[in-house]
């Protein structure tokens, strides 16, 4: 029992360290898209690990915590995808290091579709 709690606490600590890495990455990365990359991946795993740690410490609460993990895993990539799509659409510039932009040259994607009512 003690051991399980300790493992849980250490998992939570790992999660919080990953969240710290995410925030450092958010500060260091040069443009919006790279920041989104770091932000999505690291915050998702960091939060999932923190919640898993709490499950290990308090096994009685697993229901809501599992739901929370599912929710984070479902919503966080979708919201960053929507953000990335919006920021490409309003032409937020890339960093100078960018080597290729296939979305610009693709004829299929250049045609912006609108919903008509």
């Amino acid at each position: 029992m003690e051991i399980l709690e300790l493992i849980g606490a250490i998992t939570t600590l790992t999660g919080s360290l990953i969240l710290l890495v995410a925030s450092i990455g958010l500060l260091r990365m040069p443009d919006v898209y790279n920041r989104l990359q770091v932000g999505t991946k690291a915050t998702t795993l960091g939060t999932i690990l923190s919640l898993l740690g709490i499950i290990l410490i308090m096994p009685g609460w697993w229901g809501k915590l599992v739901l929370l993990i599912f929710f984070v895993m479902m919503t966080s990539p979708v919201s960053s995808h929507v953000l990335a799509r919006a920021s490409y659409f309003i032409k937020i510039p890339f960093t100078d290091k960018t080597v290729v932009d296939k979305l610009k040259v693709s004829a299929k994607a250049r045609k912006v579709e609108y919903e008509k009512k």
Partner: peptide, 18 residues
């Protein structure tokens, strides 16, 4: 840019879940 701010907000809200 404003998108940067939105990303930061998103990260803060997910971190607050933990």
């Amino acid at each position: 840019t404003s998108v940067d701010r939105v990303i930061a907000f998103d990260m803060m809200s997910i971190a607050s879940l933990a």
